[in-house]
């Protein structure tokens, strides 16, 4: 088991390198620092001098991969690749294009992101499973049929609609909760409620429908018939046997997104004014701040890979067939 985890960890390194090279290519080779400068400075004020000045200010005035003017190891270290791309391996994200320390931003913004994403994840999982189990319990009846239709309708609605409608009706018309904003501590609860509610609603359609198929697949298996032949009631069959097997794909599917919760949700945070990583990313995209986007790409990939490793571990933990073989 230990060797297995270690191997997975080592396997993650080439992937991170791949991500890093890909982002480097996208941000510096296809799209040169000159282009960036032009975009930042605006079309009107572009002079070669202004571009050079901008590049020097942001440390993009060095050669991409190899600095022939430098000596020794500086040939490799005094380059854009080393200072802007390779540095990310030690979580050295540098400064954003407007001069702030990205690492610092990330640390302060993770909390608010988690405050929204974690409850959405937990409540969403619970709601989806409950809804799916209900449909499975009433399978092949009209209740199930209409449940599925409801799911399809819910998942056909744009996530933006949930947010906008939630803000308009619940916050603006009925004045139940604040439209947007964020605060720490227990006081922050009222800010968190609406985004969580809206996000859970937006996910329940596809989630419940997916879990329903998983449970239905399990319920068609022979061991369920055995359990019934034993004399177990339908509810017990569902909870003791079907749920236990169905939870394996559900849990492992959920674990992969667990680390990504740190990144928050782009749309939700931006609409509700949550000072998390999601809104940070959106602002960066809209301000075309490449340094931040690059950092977020790397962070996101890193967290995803952590998620993959956690998935493998949780899979072998949840399924005795994998654990013991």
């Amino acid at each position: 088991m230990f060797a297995y985890i270690l191997r997975r960890l080592l396997y993650a390194i080439p992937i991170l390198i791949g991500v890093n090279l890909l982002t480097f290519a996208l941000f510096f080779v296809v799209n040169t620092p000159d282009d960036m400068a032009r975009l930042q400075l605006g079309v009107k004020h572009v002079t070669p001098e202004a571009i050079e000045r901008w590049k020097t200010e942001h440390g993009y005035d060095k050669p991409l991969l190899l600095n022939v003017e430098a000596t020794g190891s500086a040939q490799f270290t005094d380059t854009i690749f080393f200072q802007h791309s390779a540095a990310m391996f030690v979580f050295e994200f540098g400064k954003s294009d407007d001069g702030r320390d990205i690492g610092n931003e990330i640390r302060t913004r993770m909390g608010p992101s988690l405050a929204i994403a974690l409850p959405v994840f937990a409540i969403g999982l619970l709601a989806n499973i409950t809804f799916a189990l209900l449909m499975v319990f009433f399978r092949a009846t009209y209740l199930d049929l209409w449940g599925v239709v409801l799911c399809v309708v819910l998942m056909s609605i744009s996530s933006l609609f949930y947010i906008i409608a939630g803000q308009y009706f619940i916050a603006k018309l009925w004045n139940l909760l604040p439209i947007s904003g964020f605060a720490g501590g227990i006081d922050g609860l009222r800010f968190v409620l609406l985004p969580v509610l809206v996000s859970v609603m937006a996910g329940i359609g596809s989630g419940a429908r997916w879990y329903r198929t998983i449970f239905l697949e399990e319920i068609g298996k022979d061991y369920v018939r055995t359990a019934r032949a034993k004399g177990l009631s339908e509810i017990r069959v569902l909870f003791r046997h079907v749920l236990k097997n169905g939870m394996i794909p559900i849990l492992t599917g959920a674990v992969v997104v667990l680390p990504l919760l740190f990144m928050g949700s782009l749309i939700t945070e931006s609409f509700f004014g949550i000072p998390g990583l999601g809104s940070y990313t959106i602002d960066a995209i809209q301000a075309q701040d490449f340094a931040v986007v690059r950092a977020m790409v790397f962070l996101g990939s890193f967290l995803y890979i952590v998620g993959l490793i956690l998935t493998d571990i949780s899979y072998s933990w949840a399924d005795p067939r994998v654990r013991l073989q």
Partner: peptide
């Protein structure tokens, strides 16, 4: 598998954002 794990590990919106920004630069220049 390596290729698609790398692509998959980059958050989709960010990859799209990066690529679209590049296209935008190209169109504008």
């Amino acid at each position: 598998q390596y290729i698609y794990t790398v692509l998959n590990s980059i958050p989709g919106v960010l990859l799209i954002a990066a690529a679209v920004l590049i296209v935008q630069v190209y169109i504008e220049s």
